[in-house]
Amino acid sequence: MARKSPSLLFVFLAILLVSALSEASPVWKRKTAVGGWQSIDNPKDPQVVEIANFAVTEHNKEASTALAFEAVVKGEKQVVAGTNYRLVIAAKDGSATSSKQYQAVVWDKPLQKFRKLVSFEEIKG
């Protein structure tokens, strides 16, 4: 007995179902684009704090300043050839009574034992 091929309606419904599932299912969706910045959930994570301390120390060397690290306010990371960290850091300058906020970008490649301060700027306002 010869088998009949599926009707065009069945094929259309199957394609529609697969399309709907791929759009609705979180398994198929990405939170961010590949290579995009992702929020750091815990700015007190020891690795994040270590990166922030490195940023302040390197900035002090490069700019001949005496900033003292206080805390990571918030941050984002981006997976590239290693990881870029974009952090908002609270730090005091010398004997100042209040801290200022700075944005630092650090490129970290732990497997190669490489870490570089890319930028460090005071956040005005």
Rank of each mutant, 00 (worst) to 15 (best):
S98G: 13
F54I: 09
R30H: 14
S98L: 13
S19L: 10
N42R: 10
K109H: 07
K4S: 13
S5H: 09
T32C: 13
F120G: 04
D108C: 03
G35L: 09
D45R: 05
W28N: 14
S22F: 13
M1W: 05
F54L: 12
P110H: 12
V118F: 08
S99Y: 09
T32W: 04
Q78M: 06
P6Y: 11
W28F: 15
A96M: 04
V105S: 06
A52M: 07
S64F: 09
V49D: 04
D41I: 03
R30Q: 13
E121G: 14
W37S: 06
F114W: 04
A55H: 07
I89L: 02
S22A: 13
V105M: 14
Q112A: 15
K109V: 12
V80H: 05
F54A: 11
E121W: 01
F10H: 10
G125D: 06
V105T: 15
S5T: 06
E122F: 09
S95I: 01
K124N: 10
N84C: 08
A104F: 07
Q101H: 14
L87R: 03
F12A: 01
L8N: 07
I89F: 00
A96Q: 12
Y102K: 11
E50L: 14
E23L: 15
V72P: 01
F12I: 00
P43H: 02
F120C: 09
A33Y: 02
G35N: 11
K61S: 06
Q101D: 02
T57W: 03
H59S: 09
K29H: 09
S64N: 14
R115Q: 15
V79P: 00
A52F: 05
K100H: 14
A33W: 00
V18I: 15
S7R: 14
R30D: 07
S19R: 06
L21V: 13
V18K: 04
F114Q: 13
A90N: 05
A91W: 01
R3T: 13
V88K: 12
K124C: 02
I15Q: 00
Q112K: 15
K109C: 02
P43E: 01
P43G: 02
W28A: 14
V34S: 08
G36R: 05
A2T: 10
Q112E: 11
K29F: 01
V88D: 00
L13R: 08
W37M: 04
A63K: 14
L21F: 12
N42W: 00
F54D: 03
I15T: 06
K29W: 01
S64V: 06
K109Q: 12
Q103Y: 08
V118G: 07
P46D: 10
E121C: 06
V106M: 05
Q112C: 01
V72H: 06
L111C: 00
V49Q: 08
I40F: 12
G36D: 06
E70N: 11
E122C: 09
S5G: 10
A2W: 11
K74I: 01
I40E: 01
L21N: 08
D93K: 15
P43L: 02
K74R: 15
A33M: 03
S99E: 02
K31M: 08
V72R: 07
K124H: 12
D45K: 09
W28Y: 15
Q38A: 15
P46M: 05
R86H: 10
E76W: 04
G36K: 05
F12K: 00
